[in-house]
Design a protein around this nucleic acid. Structure first.
Lengths: 300, 300
DNA sequence: CTCCATCGATGCACGGAAGGTATCAACCTA
DNA sequence: TAGGTTGATACCTTCCGTGCATCGATGGAG
């Protein structure tokens, strides 16, 4: 059976055409080298070299086999490299879950930063809500998520990525638009409103409920996706409370007005990942998320 | 340093995800297999497998390395094959010298037979006269020649390929054409003739001189190439003695008439090769040239 | 023609690496 | 908690690769 040592030995002899010099190059002595080549030829059943008193010459088969051996050794030398790159996280795949809303704000900058710092790392994008992300992490379907708290106390780690206030989205030309001062919750008391679905968008639904009082008869529509809410605002169906970063959408016919009751950190977006993750690329990506993101950057 | 045995061991474990079964497949016991994998991981500086109480699992690096190892083993397995094929002569290159005249007769059938019987053998064609072929053989530039005797007594072997008579090439409509009986040399006494160059085509020049008497004042032209002679015959410059196989050329306006004085084996074409040749493909080709060739076959 | 240099092959002894057996430690299951 | 996995470790043996010394063959120099 062929071994890489035999291949190395044969290539050395085939290049030097001289057993002594080849042995020298291989840091060994000539006798064992001769025996290795003999064994190789016996194993192949092929004469690779013609020995003469003035050195060795290659047969046609020897020339072909020398080339094969060169390729083989080349591959053997490169084989570990890819594994090492993957293990070091410089090359790899990160499967990333993100909420639709996060694509307005941090997703673009996050992807840009990864691409810049880790060009060998591919990112696979999976849009899903927070609960789905946590489930996908448990099953190993994604490596990291951009999601909203709260998170289970065990099994995952998280780091805050972005905090922002809720603002009031109003149709262009609305009485509350273009005002210098923030709107207060009371001023919305008689406004038609579009609100979040309590079961499909619990996070935002609860958030709004904590900040302003919304009567059922005010509500014209209920939606799960922020994108839907602002579209409905733009269509004149009422006003809605949305994260400030929704401004990045540039939805025509919609303006954002600060909400007095909203703290600056009302809406939180975290990076979440399984604490037991063994994906080396993930551990290269995580430090990139610790530093502040430039969320003014356009989404990608 | 990576070895093929380690690669085989790792692939087995990576496929079985179980050291015991992998060891089984490798016809060895589990402990040394575990050690080999440990050594491999240490050499790479990479964790390839996650050991658990219910078997092993691959890391991302392990998956990539398994694929690399598969390719490496695949190549290692195929590497000897090409050398073996070349050594057996089933694959290879034969550099063949041939005289221009032989291309009218045996060259086509020879090539066809090689292509048919040894599809893996490529033939490189080199047109040269006999003397050039012998020199090229000595210097190792060609492996075999289609040439005319005599050959040096040492260093080369030969086998007759084709013997044929000389015939008289006459212009169409010539008084000697379309005659039922062979022409005798005497009848050519007063014919304008095209003859062979004594130095550039000594073989044919001598051959003609041995068979018929040609006076200098008969000679209208002298040429080295048979093709030139028949072209001149076709142009009405005279008659010429050419090998019968020249008929295969189908030169328009030229007809061939038997020559009474020519024995059937007047013109000889042999295969010649260096007796010391180590080209395995050549030794596969030689037996093909022993059997009679169908020279009626059109040239290729 | 003889001697000597060169080159690869062979004989012999040693050391290290790989394999096998026995056993252990960790973990899951019942 | 006991039994059955699974992989790791300890210890021993064997064998292969290596180095040293030497041989046989060939070709060139004197």
């Amino acid at each position: 059976m062929l071994t890489l040592d035999q291949a190395r030995a044969f290539v050395a002899v085939a290049e030097e055409l001289h057993f002594g010099r080849a042995a020298d190059r291989l840091r060994m002595t000539q006798p064992p080298l001769s025996r290795q080549i003999q064994k190789l030829e016996k194993a192949l059943g092929v004469t690779l070299l013609l020995r003469g008193p003035r050195g060795a010459a290659l047969t046609a088969a020897g020339e072909a086999f020398r080339d094969e051996c060169r390729r083989l050794l080349d591959m053997a030398e490169r084989a570990p490299r890819r594994a090492q790159l993957i293990a070091s996280g410089q090359v790899g795949l990160v499967r990333l879950g993100y909420t639709a809303a996060s694509s307005f704000s941090v997703l673009g900058p996050v992807l840009a930063r990864i691409k810049d710092a880790l060009p060998g790392v591919a990112v696979e994008l999976h849009e899903m809500v927070t609960a789905q992300q946590l489930e996908a992490m448990r099953s190993g379907a994604i490596d990291i998520g951009l999601a909203r708290p709260p998170f289970p106390p065990e099994g995952v780690e998280s780091a805050p990525l972005l905090t922002e206030p809720l603002v009031v989205a109003v149709p262009a030309g609305h009485r509350l638009s273009r005002r210098g001062t923030p709107v207060s919750g009371r001023e919305l008391r008689d406004e038609p409103m579009i609100t979040y679905s309590a079961d499909q968008a619990r996070y935002f639904s609860d958030l709004v409920a904590d900040l302003v009082e919304v009567r059922a008869d005010q509500v014209t529509h209920t939606a799960a996706q922020i994108l839907t809410l602002v579209a409905l605002v733009g269509a004149g169906h009422g006003v809605a409370l949305v994260p400030r970063s929704t401004r990045q959408l540039g939805m025509p016919g919609v303006e954002m007005v600060p909400l007095r009751e909203s703290p600056a950190d009302a809406v939180r977006l975290h990076a979440v990942w399984p604490e037991a993750s063994t994906n080396p690329a993930l551990h290269r990506v995580l430090p990139l998320l610790r530093e502040p993101l430039d969320t003014a950057q356009p989404m990608q």
